[in-house]
Design a protein around this nucleic acid. Structure first.
Lengths: 196, 196
DNA sequence: GTCTATACAGGGATAGAC
DNA sequence: GTCTATCCCTGTATAGAC
């Protein structure tokens, strides 16, 4: 049979993303992706010539998803606490459950194994995420919702670091540990209210 | 020649740790370890029968090193800020530079690939690290150096999460980003002083 | 777009000599 | 304790038929 069901690229990316999250870049094979979706490894190569291309595509789609999500959060929430809570919820929702772990963390650990394209996507992913968080921080400072003790870039990096770390550690610490840490974040305990 | 130079286990562990940090568990081979230290893969297997055993040994030694370090910090510093600064410095020293990344983060990402022994070591590593940090937190609360707004376990987990995340992200964000985040941590901006 | 077949490299692990 | 040789499997990738 010439075609079994004409796999869509999204199906391929879904499986690749799932495997990448749970096993790391060197922990899954093109064959694994094919089997999961019901085609041969040769067919996977038809859609994405190399494993590096596949990983770059997965990262690209992931990044776009995050940008859409953070843009929506920026629209839906105007206050700092609301935005932080929404970001935390987004991380918990997009990322926890079927395999936890954010692709950014995975990509950092496996950075040396990635293709140039995938490394570039990783850098962009980090820049986009911190960019949004820094924007939120700047606006919150203008509204005097948080103290201006540190620059926005550093606060954004710190917030992202905590989220990434907590997500990663949840594999040994359990989901409840992640929930506790993010609750602490969302409570705003990281950022002093001005006047104190 | 029967023996070229009688490799010590520590040499093997040094190289294995270096490779594990920089390439992840599935990103290096037993052959790589052997070549780096100057022996064949078969000889590596003589010291550590399986790759899982080797990884478990690396993690075990790493954990003991951290426990020794944190014990020393507990002795040398009595105040919260001093201890946090020392922990941050220890992370920067033990971990940044030749390959950054903490083995705990690596082990979490590659968790599914690890042997039972290595997974158990990972869990212990996490427990030991959070254990020390929680102890520091409890004592700081008693001395009223920090507010008792959250339980010690959560604060410890949060502190460790931030450190792990910042270390990981430094691969794309640069060492300066790690420095800024940890400076913010060491300043104690995470933890309100009581009475505010 | 999918398949089978295949090339080729690399990885984990073992056997047995020295 | 180290070596060489080897087994067997897996991984990436390609060629060419359907």
């Amino acid at each position: 049979m010439a075609k079994r069901r004409d796999i869509t690229r999204d199906e391929l990316l879904d499986e690749a993303e799932h495997l990448l999250r749970n096993h790391g870049y060197n922990g899954f094979s093109i064959r694994d992706v094919g089997e999961a979706v019901g085609i041969s490894s040769a067919s996977v190569h038809h859609h994405y010539p190399t494993k590096g291309d596949l990983a770059a595509a997965v990262l690209h789609r992931y990044r776009e998803r995050w940008n859409a999500k953070l843009g929506a959060i920026a629209m839906e929430h105007e206050d700092w606490r609301g935005r932080v809570a929404a970001v935390v919820a987004a991380f918990a929702g997009m990322v926890v459950g079927k395999g936890s772990a954010c692709l950014l963390a995975i990509a950092c650990v496996d950075h040396a194994s990635l293709s140039n394209a995938a490394q570039a996507e990783t850098k962009l992913l980090h820049e986009n995420l911190t960019g949004w968080l820094a924007r939120f921080t700047v606006e919150a400072k203008k509204r005097e919702e948080i103290a201006a003790s540190h620059d926005a870039g550093t606060m954004a990096e710190s917030l992202l670091s905590t989220l990434q770390g907590a997500l990663l550690l949840s594999r040994v610490a359990g989901d409840s540990a992640f929930a506790k840490v993010t609750t602490m974040l969302a409570d705003g305990s990281m950022h002093r209210v001005p006047g104190e």
